[in-house]
Amino acid sequence: MTDSSLSQAEYDAITDAAAHWCTRLHAIDCTAQERIAFEHWRDAHPLHAFEYEAMLEIWEIAGDLPRPDAVEPISHSRPVMPWRTLGIAAAVCALAVPLALYGGWNMGWLPNSYQHFEARETVRQVILSDGSQVELNLGSELTFSNYKDQRQVTLEKGEAFFSVSDDASHPFILKAADGRIRVTGTRFNVWMYEDQVRVNLIEGSGLVSSNDDLVGNGMRLGPATQARYKRGDFTPQISQTDANDNSLAWRSGKLVLDNLELNDALPLINRYLSKPVMVADHNTGSIRLGGIYNIKELNSLVASLPKVLPVYLTRNKEGNPVLNSIPQQAPKS
């Protein structure tokens, strides 16, 4: 699977492969190795599984087709589905699945374009099949599906900045945690860490909901506004973006911490770490941290924290670094 949208040739190749697997898996001599290979193919792209399931439904048609009067059995007199029938079934499947895909598109059930993107150790710029531009921060992952009635993005993890192409009749919906952001043409940033989500709208307008199951479109966001929510929140918290907001500093490779308590600073830091840093208690979490840091060097920041803060490092049983505040000595009388 590639990052670019599927071409007609790629759709045809998926159809042909699905017909092949439909034939082989119903053959008496299908091997265990072939079944493993099929599972790898099926899991490689959502449309693979859909097309195969569609073929299984149509396979019954082949069972009702006329069969030759005599079929040469293999050893041990085990019955085998005639290859003529298998060929007809594959042909029927090859014709029917594109029709099913077309019907699924018209019903709004299936996308006509699917893309998956990851940014690991470098910031990455990508273009979605609708023309929207996305900048992915380190350690980020998202998928894009273009449906007939909407454009849908799922932010699996990390952070992304979106410049959405304007199409009022084809809304752009981003899902993060249990919430969603609905826009048409606008520019906005979405940060996600574990169950926390923060949305910064730069220009345009949008609707934000913290729970996709709730009735309604959500709360309105305008330029220079921010929404925050956690998984399970009934509604997001909306506020004006501070004039000195540094949430987009990552696009320049920086993390800016403006005298934040460790309870607020650590989620911003931990987003880049393989082992999140913990705080031992409330007193430690209330210690403040500031500064400008390179997002690629945050592992070294953790080791240096005892040099700039009244803390020392330990590790919990899972191996996570734990910050502990140094007890203040009472002044001598």
Rank of each mutant, 00 (worst) to 15 (best):
L99Q: 11
L110Q: 07
P66K: 15
V92F: 07
L47F: 11
L65C: 14
P111H: 08
E72S: 13
A90T: 13
F50I: 10
A119D: 01
R84N: 04
V92A: 11
L65K: 15
P82M: 00
G103N: 07
F50H: 12
L56H: 10
V97N: 01
E53G: 05
E57A: 10
M107D: 00
Y102V: 10
E72F: 05
Q125M: 04
V80D: 02
A54V: 05
A44Y: 06
I88F: 15
E60G: 14
R84T: 14
H76D: 03
L86V: 08
W105L: 01
M55V: 06
E53F: 05
C93W: 07
M107Y: 11
Q125E: 06
P46L: 08
G63F: 13
A94P: 02
A44M: 13
A70S: 11
Q125S: 09
W59R: 14
A89Y: 04
Y114V: 12
R78G: 00
S77T: 12
I74C: 02
R120W: 07
E72H: 13
A90P: 08
L101T: 05
E72M: 13
M107L: 10
T122M: 09
P73T: 08
D69F: 12
L101I: 07
W109A: 01
A100F: 10
N112F: 09
E57M: 09
A91S: 12
C93F: 08
I88P: 01
